[in-house]
C-alpha cells in the first residue's frame, strides 16, 4: 500500500474539444468527464455514443457539442459499433485515430454488457469509457445494476430502496484480461487525464475506463457540490481509484480514510438510511477495500 499514489501531471492542455452551450444539466459529472477526456485524447478521436445522457448533451441535429466526430448508435451496441468503426479505419490504414466508445452505466453494466464483453474478448483496439452516474438518469433516474446498495431511484422508491449491491464492472472487464482497466473520477482530473493518456498510448487492445460521474439531478444534491461528492466517494473508498494491467497487475492510486457516512449523509438519494443501514454499507465498503488490497498484495507482477 505504500506505493499508493495519485497520478499527477504538471500540465493539462488548455485546448477544449467541447463547445460551450451543450445541454447538460448544471453540475453534470458526465460533461466534466468528457471535457477532460478529450483534453487527453485530442482531435484524432472518434466518439461512439449509444443512448445515454451524452446522446442528448451532444446536441440535436444539425448541431454538435464536440469538435471530434460522433457516431450515435443504439443502446446495446457501443462495443460492437466501435469494433466495426475500428475495422473500417484499419482497412483505410488509419492507425492514428483513436476510437472511443462513450457510454453510461445502463449502456455498459446492463443492456450493453453483451456487446462490450464480446468486443473485449476479441480485444478490439479501442477505448471504452463508462461514465457512471449510477442510474438511468436520462430517462428520469431509474435503477441500473450500477446503482449502489441503499439508493432510492424512481424504480426503487420509498421503502423499496435498492438492496442489492452495485455490480463491479471494472473487475468484470479485468477478468477478460484486457491490457488496461482503470477507475477514474471527475474530482481527480490530473489522475483521470493521465489514465486517458495511458489508455491512448496502449494501442492494439481494449482499454476500459470506469469514470465516476456525479449527477446532481439524480442524486438529489446541490449542483455546486457535484465535484465534492465525487471526491468524497474516493476519500471514503466507496469508489477507489486504481488501475489493472493485463487483468493481473493491480495498482492503487488513492487510499481513502473517511467514513462512508460523510459521503452518504449529503445526498438526497440516501437520506432515508438508518445508522444500521449506514453501518452495513460501511462493512461492504471495508470488505471491498480489503479484497482490493489483497489483490494488490498478491500481484503476479512486481
Amino acid at each position: 500500500m505504500e506505493d499508493c499514489q495519485i497520478m499527477l501531471q504538471q500540465k493539462i492542455s488548455d485546448k477544449d474539444y467541447m463547445y460551450p452551450g451543450h445541454v447538460a444539466c448544471p453540475g453534470c459529472g458526465a460533461a466534466i468527464a468528457m471535457r477532460f477526456a478529450l483534453k487527453a485524447l485530442g482531435e484524432k478521436t472518434m466518439m461512439v455514443i449509444p443512448a445515454c445522457c451524452w446522446g442528448v448533451i451532444a446536441g440535436p441535429y444539425p448541431q454538435t457539442s464536440l469538435k471530434v466526430p460522433i457516431l450515435h448508435t443504439a443502446f446495446a451496441t457501443a462495443g460492437a459499433t466501435a469494433s466495426g468503426l475500428r475495422a473500417a479505419l484499419d482497412m483505410k490504414e488509419d492507425t492514428e485515430t483513436t476510437v472511443v466508445a462513450w457510454a453510461g452505466d445502463g449502456g455498459t453494466f446492463d443492456i450493453g454488457i453483451q456487446a462490450l464483453s464480446g468486443a473485449v474478448e476479441r480485444n478490439e483496439d479501442f477505448i471504452y469509457v463508462c461514465y457512471d452516474n449510477e442510474a438511468y438518469m436520462n430517462t428520469g433516474v431509474q435503477r441500473s445494476s450500477a446503482t449502489p446498495f441503499g439508493s432510492r431511484t424512481t424504480t426503487t422508491p420509498g421503502k423499496d430502496w435498492k438492496r442489492s449491491r452495485k455490480k463491479n464492472i471494472t473487475e468484470i472487464l479485468a477478468a477478460h484480461r484486457i491490457p488496461y482497466a482503470a477507475t477514474a473520477s471527475i474530482a481527480f482530473p490530473e489522475d483521470m487525464i493521465q489514465k486517458f493518456n495511458v489508455a491512448k498510448q496502449l494501442k492494439g487492445g481494449t482499454r476500459f475506463l470506469h469514470v465516476f460521474a456525479s449527477c446532481p439531478t439524480g442524486w438529489r444534491i446541490p449542483t455546486e457540490i457535484s465535484v465534492k461528492i465525487a471526491r468524497l466517494a474516493v476519500q471514503t473508498n466507496v469508489f477507489p481509484l486504481y488501475e489493472i494491467k493485463n487483468g493481473i497487475d493491480y495498482r492503487l492510486n488513492y487510499k481513502g480514510d473517511r467514513p462512508v457516512t460523510d459521503y452518504l449523509k449529503v445526498q438526497g438519494r440516501f437520506k432515508h438510511l438508518t445508522d444500521d443501514d449506514i453501518k452495513q454499507i460501511q462493512d461492504m465498503v471495508d470488505e471491498d477495500w480489503e479484497l482490493l488490497r489483497r489483490k494488490m498484495e498478491n500481484n503476479l507482477v512486481t
Partner: peptide
C-alpha cells in the same frame, strides 16, 4: 457475439 452486434458492427464500419 450476436446478430444484434453483427448489424451494429457493419453500421459502425459503413459509417467509417
Amino acid at each position: 457475439e450476436s446478430e444484434h452486434s453483427a448489424m451494429a458492427a457493419v453500421i459502425g464500419a459503413a459509417s467509417g
